[in-house]
Structure formats: structure tokens, C-alpha cells
Lab assay of single mutants.
Amino acid sequence: MATKAVCVLKGDGPVQGIINFEQKESNGPVKVWGSIKGLTEGLHGFHVHEFGDNTAGCTSAGPHFNPLSRKHGGPKDEERHVGDLGNVTADKDGVADVSIEDSVISLSGDHCIIGRTLVVHEKADDLGKGGNEESTKTGNAGSRLACGVIGIAQ
């Protein structure tokens, strides 16, 4: 089992970053940390998408990683996509320092995120509470600013 993974985020604009993942036990939580720069100040949706395909930019990554066919939600919700990591918060300089621990994603097994795409979005994720159909699919997080395929790390 891989215990570490990394993702280099890039987009068409100024947004870029490096996100690290570490899972010490196969059924334990995954620590997610790193930094994203070039964002507007505020909240930005942060999700693992189904495919590791960036051939047409971030759009070819498909929908959120959702092997259990659930509705979109927040990272602490029972009803959520596996890939729903909530929001990252950018400061006035456009930098989001990421520090998350998640017990639904994994670096092995059915919820493995390796080979899938991590995406940072234009807007805040409403965590499935926006009151419309799009909220239950995407959290109304808007366009995909930057993305990268999650790969095994040393």
C-alpha cells in the first residue's frame, strides 16, 4: 500500500500549488496538507474528481469521485461524495494553506484517490446545502481553477 501521495495543481491562470497526502494505516485517516497560491481571497471548493484525465484541462477530470452514488455534502457529513473535501481558505495575498484530515478518502482500496484528479474551484462549496439540484452534485463551487493528478510519492 502506498502511504504517501502528492498532487501538483496547475491551471490556465495564476492558480498553482502542491498538496501532499499521507496515510499511516490502511483504514486510518489521510492527512492532506500543502499550499495553493494565486486564488482570490475567501473560500474555494476542494474536491477529488473521478478521473485522472487532464487532456482537456480540468474539465476532463469528470464529476466528483463518488463510488457510493451519494449526494454532495461537506467533509463531516454522512451523506457526501468520497471526493468531497470541503473548502480551502485563501488569505488576502491569495494563498491557501491547506491542513485537512479526512477519514473517507484513502490511498488504497475502494476509496483510493491515487490516479484521480484534485481540483480547486472558483467559488465556495455550499456543502450540499444550497437548496438546488446543482448543490447536491457540485456544491455550486463554480469553474475549475486548477487541477492535477494525484500520484504515489516516496
Results as ranks from 00 to 15, higher is better:
Val120Cys: 10
Glu101Val: 11
Lys76Leu: 13
Gly74Trp: 08
Gln16Cys: 05
Leu9Asp: 05
Val48Gly: 00
Asp102Trp: 00
Glu122Gly: 10
Asn20Trp: 13
Arg70Lys: 12
Gly86Gln: 00
Thr117Asp: 03
Arg144Asn: 15
His64Ser: 07
Asp93Lys: 09
Ala90Asn: 00
Asp12Ala: 13
Cys112His: 12
Lys4Ser: 13
Val15Tyr: 02
Gly128His: 02
Ala141Tyr: 09
Glu79Val: 10
Lys37Ala: 09
Ala153Lys: 06
Pro63Ala: 15
Gly94Trp: 01
Arg144His: 09
Lys31Val: 09
Glu134Arg: 00
Arg116Val: 02
Ala61Asn: 08
His44Gly: 01
Val30Ala: 01
Gly62His: 14
Gly109Ala: 05
Thr59Glu: 05
Gly109Glu: 01
Val15Glu: 15
Glu22Gly: 05
Leu9Tyr: 02
Phe21Lys: 05
Gly34Arg: 03
Lys76Trp: 14
Ala56Trp: 04
Val120Gln: 00
Leu107Thr: 01
Thr89Glu: 10
Ile152Phe: 03
Glu41Val: 13
Asn27Pro: 14
Ala146His: 01
Thr138Gln: 04
Glu79Ser: 15
Ile18Phe: 08
Lys10His: 11
Glu25Cys: 05
His47Arg: 11
Gln16Lys: 14
Ala56Leu: 08
Leu68Val: 07
Asp110Gln: 09
Gly142Ser: 04
His121Ser: 13
Thr136Ser: 14
Lys123Phe: 12
Thr55Val: 03
Ser99Asp: 11
Arg70Ile: 14
Gly38Lys: 02
Cys147Glu: 14
Asp110Glu: 15
Leu43Met: 13
Gly42Gln: 01
Pro14Gly: 15
Lys71Ile: 08
Ser26Asp: 05
His47Gly: 06
Thr59Lys: 08
Leu118Cys: 05
Thr89Tyr: 15
Leu118Phe: 03
Gly139Lys: 02
Asp125Ile: 13
Asn140Arg: 07
Gly28Trp: 07
Glu101Phe: 15
Cys58Ile: 12
Gly17His: 01
Gly73Trp: 02
Pro29Gly: 07
Glu79Leu: 13
Val6Gln: 15
Asn66Pro: 06
Val88Asp: 00
Ser99Cys: 11
Ile114Ala: 02
Gln23Cys: 02
Gly34Pro: 00
Gln16Glu: 12
